[in-house]
Design a protein around this nucleic acid. Structure first.
Length: 901
RNA sequence: AGGCACGUAGCUCAGGGGGAGAGCACUUCCCUGACACGGAAGGGGUCGGCGGUUCAAAUCCGCCCGUGCCUACCA
């Protein structure tokens, strides 16, 4: 510990180690209560609710992106002075959770029926307490700044009360009803599913189209129907043809003999039939197909159910009773073939719907279920998007939303499960039905005590659609609701626009008269390196926790945000995280450099660069040197860029602006430019640079904080300055200060960069090693003042022994480059290198100039261009041509000298 | 079938009517006292194809090809 003043340096390893910081800072943020949103606060506010992950869920890359974006918004607004609420919680996920526990039971050789409803539910709760919510801890690893004190669960007491209240209200308004409908039935989960939960396989699945002859009852030929589901023939009650179809006019109204079943069924006309498809004749099975059900109703045909809840053919299926639906299909086809009634079988792709939870093929089934009448609820939800009070970003999703809303169908909300909110409807022994907010003991109509509650539970989404306000205490009129509702933004994936987003909008209007959020940002879908959707079955989804362990949470966050442009899917490969890891390490090392110099001087403690408690930056007055003025000016530029990008949800643009500034300007140039002063003897110059360093780091870290919370806190806390707040989490977000914009400084440093690059380029191309000193000569435009302002920096950065301003005469036969605004930069090398190499370089330059000149002259040669293009554009081209001509002349002169020699 | 999006450097992708960009990969040089998870300098693209609008098109429009996604009552 000899160098005691460098103790902090000793702590800072050469590479950043996320493991050493992340856990510590997260704990300190929680302890500090920074994420808690105070409902009694005043001033601006910002609220966002998390799309509640399933309690059964584990973090995947989609969550990482989604929650990082929310965290960026939350942290940004929190720093920007808003009382910020990021509402967290989990979803009880009816089917998914029930499946998990049923699987567990299966290992013990039990089914839920062995336990009974009550014991089973106890078992699910037990599972939830022990194993559920892993994802919440995983979100914390990611750095999510949720208000965990408010964490909710869709089955907790408050939310259950909200669900019940909504059901009863809608029931009383006749917006909830019970009816016999064709719904999607999962024969494995044993429950009804909403339309959205029965997913169609892309492009259909390989199957066949069977053409079957149905003879006429009177012994005639009858007709041929085409079907993809021959087994449902057992439940046919008729055959439909298009009314205009000339082929079947004679058969209309006649009876056919249903094969295998020997039942007489009618032929009728319905416009739903497509003449072009198959034979133009459709077998009608009202109990097992939604369209057939419609036609059956129109033509007063009684549905005939031939399948039970497990997909087994019932007694109504005659000889086929007891067979599984697919076995029955084989047998039916075989029997038809044996009887010569199978006309042909052709390969056909069938749109098959599968259960979104277990992927079992779903069965359209006629069943008594509860529905929400959606059309009235859609009215304000449509108006909201049309009048702009609700925005979808990117807005191309608006069309998708509108289409769904305009063609909305009633929502089947009952599920034949046990895990979920139970339908709050009771039936009494005298046939009365009623909904109740609290569990009743007798029938309100007849006072009978023989009452029974509906056994079904509600669709999981029936609690999710209330999420934005149920989590804030609704139906009570709470301070939280008044302060934070409606929320500002919703960040979610587009695949749940219908399941969730659209329904929340409807619920918000129906129950609170307001849209629950203003902006809906639909984030990218994260795919694997080959563009495939990440899925468990493919095993192509990296475990984000492993990635965090390997690279750090900040690295993962920054990478994911950087590669996710608005509205485009992203491809993620674990190795891509190196991008963020490298950036984090770069920042870390830049900070080591800064801290080394900031702490090296104990005699002159640094002034606090922060005006007390404000988000503005240090007055420009302190910055005197050119590089200082430049970097502070550039800082204002990034601040505006980042703020602008965030306001437009252009997260990747914000990230890239920060990356370019931090790495490409601060590290690549400013730190290098600061070295002459820092390593020099001029104490005043040193102090100025140190102050700028401190300001730049303080401000840049704050800008970066929402993206890389851990690293920025770690470094910020190490900066030797008076901090306005205990944590960077709540430090004011930088606000650009126009007074610190300095166009002149930006121009001068721009020239410096160009000049240094030019010299380096010449060195590299001509093979002059850094150890060989060169003299740089500059034929300056308009005097040598600009050169003299930067010559010291050129000398250091270009490793030049001297920088000279040329008088009238210019060197001949030497490599050079033109730096607009500064002049022509020469690196005299005669004698030091092979003249042939110099000539080669000059010829290459000349070639480039000629090529460019040809283009520009061509443009200027067209009268249309000169006449019609805007004058400033023409002017620019003319200036370009002039400069190129001059450059060409110079190069030719140099070459002439070389060739002569 | 319809709708939407995408097709830009070897790879992954930004950009978007008047100078073709980034990261990775590649070539050459450099372990220079923040950083080799680094530095310096480079090579590489007729911006999917064909037409159109325009003084000017990678950028706007149309068609085509390819890819992906969403929606749908083709039994």
């Amino acid at each position: 510990m000899g160098e005691k003043h460098h103790s902090r340096m000793a702590e800072l390893a050469k590479t950043y180690d996320p493991k050493a910081t992340e856990e510590r800072w997260y704990a300190s943020w929680l302890a500090g209560g920074y994420f808690h949103a105070d409902e009694h606060s005043s001033g601006p506010h910002f609220a966002v609710v998390i799309p509640p992950p399933n309690v059964t869920g584990v973090l995947h890359m989609g969550h990482v992106l989604n929650n990082t974006l929310q965290d960026i918004l939350a942290r940004f607004h929190r720093m920007d002075g808003c009382a910020t609420l990021w509402m967290p919680g989990t979803d009880h996920a009816g089917i998914a959770t029930q499946n998990v526990v049923e699987k567990q039971l299966a290992k013990e050789g039990l089914t839920r029926h062995d336990l009974g409803r009550e014991a089973f539910l106890a078992r699910v709760w037990q599972w939830k307490e022990e194993k559920g919510g892993v994802i919440v801890r995983q979100l914390q690893r990611l750095g999510a700044s949720c208000d965990w004190e408010r964490e909710r669960f869709t089955m907790d007491e408050g939310l259950s009360r909200a669900v019940r209240e909504v059901f009863v209200r809608l029931y009383e308004k006749d917006l909830i009803y019970r009816g016999q409908r064709i719904i999607h039935w999962c024969v494995r989960c044993h429950t009804a599913l909403a339309d959205e939960e029965a997913v169609t396989t892309e492009g259909g699945e390989a199957s066949s189209l069977w053409h079957i002859r149905y003879p006429a009852e009177d012994g005639g030929a009858g007709l041929v129907v085409a079907t993809t589901r021959p087994e449902t023939l057992l439940g046919d009650v008729g055959v439909a043809v298009h009314p205009d179809d000339t082929r079947y006019q004679a058969l209309l109204g006649k009876q056919l003999m249903l094969p295998l079943m020997q039942r007489s069924i009618p032929v009728f006309a319905d416009t739903l039939v497509d003449k072009e498809f198959g034979s133009g004749a459709v077998k009608v099975t009202p109990a097992h197909d939604a369209n057939d059900f419609e036609m059956g109703q129109r033509h007063h045909l009684e549905p005939l159910c031939i399948m039970d809840s497990q997909g087994i053919i019932t007694a109504a299926g005659g000889a086929y009773a007891g067979l599984d639906r697919f076995e029955a299909r084989k047998r039916v086809v075989a029997d038809l073939e044996a009887q010569g009634l199978l006309v042909k079988t052709e390969p056909h792709r069938v749109p098959v719907r599968r259960c979104y939870r277990c992927e079992t093929i779903v069965e359209p089934a006629l069943s008594l279920q509860w529905f929400v009448k959606m059309a009235p609820l859609a009215v304000p939800a449509l108006a909201a998007i049309r009048d702009g009070s609700l925005r979808l970003i990117p807005d191309r999703w608006t069309g998708v939303y509108l289409h769904w809303m305009e063609n909305i169908r009633d929502w089947c909300i009952s599920r034949q499960l046990w895990w979920g909110h139970r339908v709050p409807v009771w039936y009494c022994d005298r046939g009365h039905e009623f909904a109740a907010r609290t569990d009743p003991s007798l029938c309100p109509t007849c006072a009978s005590t023989a009452i029974e509650q509906d056994p079904d539970v509600l669709d999981t989404w029936f609690s999710s659609w209330l999420w934005p306000f149920s989590t804030m205490g609704w139906p009570d009129d709470t301070a939280t609701l008044r302060r934070f509702y409606p929320t500002d933004a919703l960040v979610t994936a587009a695949d749940i626009i219908f399941f969730w987003v659209a329904r929340m909008v409807m619920a918000g209007y129906e129950l609170l008269g307001e849209c629950p959020f203003r902006d809906v940002y639909l984030n990218s879908i994260v795919r694997d390196g080959q563009g495939r959707k990440m899925s468990k079955s493919l095993g192509n989804s990296p475990d984000p926790i492993d990635v965090i362990d390997q690279y750090g949470a900040d690295a993962l966050r920054f990478t994911v945000v950087s590669i996710a442009p608005v509205g485009q899917d992203v491809r993620f490969d674990t190795e891509r995280t190196e991008f963020g890891r490298n950036f984090a390490n770069k920042i870390w090392n830049a900070a080591r450099f800064a801290l080394m110099h900031l702490e090296a001087d104990e005699r002159s403690p640094h002034p606090d660069p922060l005006p007390a408690g404000e988000g503005t930056v240090l007055a420009a007055a302190a910055a005197t040197s050119l590089p200082d003025r430049w970097i502070l000016s550039r800082l204002q530029g990034v601040i505006d860029e980042v703020r602008g990008a965030l306001a437009a949800y252009r997260f990747n643009d914000a990230a890239s602006a920060l990356y370019r500034f931090t790495w490409g300007e601060v590290c690549d140039w400013y730190l290098e430019l600061s070295k002459p002063a820092l390593y020099g003897d001029d104490e005043a110059a040193k102090a100025g640079v140190r102050r700028t360093l401190l300001t730049v780091f303080d401000q840049t870290l704050r800008l970066l904080h929402p993206f890389m919370p851990f690293l920025t806190e770690e470094i910020w806390q190490a900066l030797p300055m008076t901090r306005p707040t205990a944590s960077i989490c709540i430090a004011p977000y930088p606000l650009a200060d126009a007074a610190q914009r300095d166009d002149a400084a930006e121009a001068r440093i721009g020239e410096l960069i160009a000049a240094v690059t030019a010299v380096r380029n010449i060195r590299a191309e001509l093979g002059i090693p850094p150890s060989t000193p060169v003299t740089v000569r500059i034929a300056a435009e308009g005097g040598g003042e600009r050169v003299r302002a930067i010559e010291g920096f050129i000398r250091t950065l270009a490793k030049a022994s001297a920088v000279e301003v040329l008088a009238a005469e210019r060197p001949s036969g030497e490599p050079s480059a033109v730096v607009p605004g500064l002049g022509e930069v020469f690196v005299p090398l005669r004698g030091a290198v092979d003249p042939a190499a110099v000539r080669e370089r000059l010829e290459k330059d000349l070639g480039k100039v000629e090529k460019e000149l040809t283009g520009v002259d061509g443009k200027l040669g067209r009268p249309d261009f000169v006449d019609k293009a805007p004058p400033d554009i023409v002017d620019k081209e003319r200036q370009k041509a002039a400069a190129l001509r001059e450059r060409r002349a110079t190069l030719e002169k140099h070459l002439a000298v070389l060739r002569a020699a």
